[in-house]
Design a protein around this nucleic acid. Structure first.
Length: 347
DNA sequence: CGGCATACG
DNA sequence: CGTAT
DNA sequence: GCCG
C-alpha cells in the first residue's frame, strides 16, 4: 500500500494472461499480479531480494539524479518483484508482469547470468551516491538537503554535525539525535510493547476507543522500521480531538521525543467520489517514542553492563485516526486483506 | 509524448 | 521548497 | 523507465 497510488477499477485489472507453462516457472506464480501495488499480494517474505535490492538502488540513484520518472519505474518494478510468491529463475517467468519493461528485464538478465549488475556496482562506488545515500538515511533529510551538503564538500555525518554554518530543522535534529535507534529495525516484541503503551494511553482517555495495529507487524512481519496504528471511536465524530489528546498524554508521560501532527483534510462535501479510498486525508501523527527496555517482553529484568546501555530506545510510531465509518475501509487499505475487526483490534 | 500523490512545516 | 507516508 |  505504500507504493503505487490510487486505484481506478477497470476490467483489465483482473487476470489476463495465463502464461502457457513453458519450462522454468509455475504459470500460477505470474498470473495474478496487478499493476497496482495495493491490489498485489503482500508477502512477509521477499523471494526476489537479489533483484529488488538492485531495483531500489537504481531508484535511489535516479532520485539523486532528479529523474523522477525512472525512479518511480524502478520502485514499481521492485514492488512487483517483491509481491511474487517465489523466486524468479528465468526471464520467461516474468512475462506479462506489469512495470517490468525492456530495461528492467535487461538488468534482471544480467543478474541471472552473472549474479550481479555491473551498472549498479558502478553506482555503488560513486562518491556522490555514497554521500547522498548516507545523508538521506537521516530522518528529515531528503535529496535536496543531501545535495546541498554534498555541494558544500561535506561527506560524513560527523562533518554535518561539526559544520557551524548548518542549521538543522526540528525533524532533522530529531533525525540526528536518534539516528542509531531509528536506523535500527524494530522487533515484534518492541512493536507489542509500543502497542501496550498506546493502548493504555488511549483507553485511559477513552475506554471505548478502538485501536488496531496495522502495517508490517499486522501482516506478521518479524521486524519493521516503524509501528503503525489506526485509532477511532465507536460513535461518529467522537474521534475528533482524540489524537491530540493522546499526544498530550504521551507528552505528560515524558516519552514523546518527536511529534508531527497533521489535522484532517477529510471533507465529504469537497471530496470527489474518486478520492473515496484516499486514506491520506485523515488526522494523523508521526511520532518518535521513548521505549523502556523493561517494557519489552524478553528484555524484562535482564540488565547488561550498566553504562553500556541506556535502558531505552527510540521508536518511530504512526497513528492515524479516521472517523469510524471510514475505519474498516482504512484498515483494509493498510492491511491489504479483509479480516474480522475483533482479531485486529489491540487487546 | 505526457503523466507518474499529496499534506504539511 | 522539501519531506513524509 | 513504463504505460497508454
Amino acid at each position: 500500500m505504500r507504493e503505487g497510488r490510487p486505484v481506478r477499477v477497470e476490467t483489465r485489472h483482473s487476470i489476463q494472461n495465463t502464461p502457457t507453462g513453458t519450462d522454468c516457472s509455475p504459470p500460477t506464480a505470474v498470473a495474478n499480479v496487478s499493476q497496482y501495488a495495493c491490489q498485489r499480494r503482500t508477502t512477509t517474505e521477499n523471494h526476489n531480494k537479489i533483484f529488488t535490492d538492485v531495483m531500489e538502488e537504481l531508484a535511489e540513484s535516479s532520485e539523486f539524479n532528479e529523474s523522477k520518472g525512472p525512479c518511480l519505474a524502478f520502485r514499481q518494478a521492485a514492488s512487483v518483484l517483491k509481491s511474487l510468491p517465489s523466486a524468479v529463475h528465468c526471464l520467461k517467468a516474468i512475462q506479462g508482469l506489469p512495470c517490468l519493461g525492456e530495461h528492467t528485464k535487461a538488468v534482471m538478465e544480467e543478474i541471472l547470468t552473472f549474479g550481479r549488475s555491473f551498472k549498479v556496482e558502478e553506482i555503488r562506488c560513486d562518491e556522490r551516491y555514497q554521500a547522498l545515500k548516507l545523508f538521506t538515511s537521516v530522518f528529515g533529510v531528503g535529496p535536496k538537503t543531501a545535495e546541498k551538503w554534498y555541494r558544500r564538500g561535506l561527506r560524513s555525518l560527523q562533518e554535518i554535525l561539526t559544520e557551524p554554518n548548518i542549521q538543522l530543522n526540528r525533524m532533522q535534529r530529531a533525525g540526528f539525535l536518534y539516528y542509531s535507534d531509528i536506523s535500527k529495525a524494530v522487533s515484534k516484541a518492541e512493536a507489542k510493547a509500543v502497542g501496550c503503551i498506546i493502548e493504555e494511553t488511549v483507553h485511559w482517555i477513552a475506554p471505548d476507543a478502538i485501536l488496531a495495529l496495522t502495517g508490517g507487524f499486522r501482516r506478521g512481519k518479524e521486524y519493521g522500521h516503524d509501528v503503525d496504528f489506526l485509532l477511532t471511536m465507536p460513535e461518529m465524530g467522537k474521534e475528533e480531538g482524540l489524537l491530540l489528546h493522546v499526544i498530550d498524554r504521551l507528552k505528560d508521560q515524558g516519552i514523546l521525543l518527536y511529534c508531527d501532527y497533521q489535522g484532517s483534510t477529510f471533507d465529504v462535501s469537497k471530496l470527489p467520489s474518486c478520492r473515496f479510498e484516499d486514506m491520506d486525508c485523515f488526522q494523523k501523527c508521526f511520532l518518535i517514542l521513548r521505549l523502556e527496555q523493561g517494557q519489552v517482553e524478553g528484555e524484562r529484568g535482564l540488565q547488561r553492563d550498566p553504562g553500556d546501555s541506556r535502558g531505552w530506545r527510540a521508536v518511530r510510531v504512526d497513528l492515524v485516526a479516521p472517523p469510524v465509518d471510514r475505519y474498516a475501509f482504512a484498515l483494509l487499505g493498510w492491511t491489504g486483506s479483509r479480516v474480522g475487526l475483533d482479531q485486529i483490534i489491540v487487546k
